[in-house]
Amino acid sequence: MAVSDERISARRRRRAGGQRGGLPAGTSRTAGYFFVAIYVVLLLALGVAPAVYAIALALSTSGGVGVSHFVDTFNFFEFLPAFEHIAEFEGIWLASQTVFVVLLALMVHTLKRRVSTAFRLIFYLPGAMAGSASAIIWLFMFTPSGSPFAFILHGLHYQVLSNTVQPSNLPIVFAIMAFFTGAGGWIVIMYGALNNIPDELIEAAEIDGSSALQTAVRIKIPLIRKWIVYMLVLSFAAGSQLFVEPQILGVATNGQVPAQWSPNQLAYYLAFQQDSFNNAAAVSVDLLVIGLLVAVLLVWRGRLFEVE
């Protein structure tokens, strides 16, 4: 009884707090709608409507409403491999990105400010190559003749591009491309997060007898943990949608990389090569659900975002 009373009053207090942060009396309550109007129209038309439409398409069958498109697409022989490819790619990419981004951010953070600025610039500049540009650059980097990294490729006994991008290598290949354009931005962000740790705290650890390594492991990493989680989740969601890299590689290798390598490619293939919008919609909904799940999880459980 006492507990629940307490809880209720806590909730009431919280609500009162919310109102205190609200508006002074007499302020218009309709003005808000006016300010968000354009955005809400866009949200409905371009966020909600397409999702609803895709679900409707995926569920509408010749016999009314059903899941047959989901079953059909699941049974395509390209379906499971596409999701396996993505899973393997995500595993390699997320693991290496997490380790290297945190490591590099910690290392750069120990450097003098001006030096670290230069390093960060080099790390994040490739971000400008996002999209097809990165895929093209790495096409060259992965071609043993003429690549600055040829010595490594030759060391692996690769003679031509198709050796490098053999099917078993593709998850690593795409992970490298994604790391190249994406890691720098995250390093910069982690660096900023590390900078937000008060100097006093690091000094306190130092006085408490902590070595630089211990401080990194016990103080710094725990304090930027939410950023690491944020990076992992966002990267996972983005990675599930992989499209441009396998697409470009497919074009450049004359189809050695299949046009249904990733689920998104599969959806595209179904829509435009098979003219089966319903099936394409079904795969898209699969992907949408993954993205949505991750987002909802992060917003509600992660406590990462300022909602009030």
């Binding site: 949200l43 439409y53 499209f243 959806a267 829509a271 919609a281 898209s284 949408l288 949505l292 909602v307």
Partner: peptide
């Protein structure tokens, strides 16, 4: 509610909506 929906849509990769957008 609008804020929460905004957050969800913001985290969801934009690519996920491309095919549905095309259909629309």
């Amino acid at each position: 509610t609008l804020l929460a929906v905004t957050l969800v849509v913001m985290i969801m990769p934009a690519t996920a909506l491309v095919m549905p957008l095309f259909l629309e």
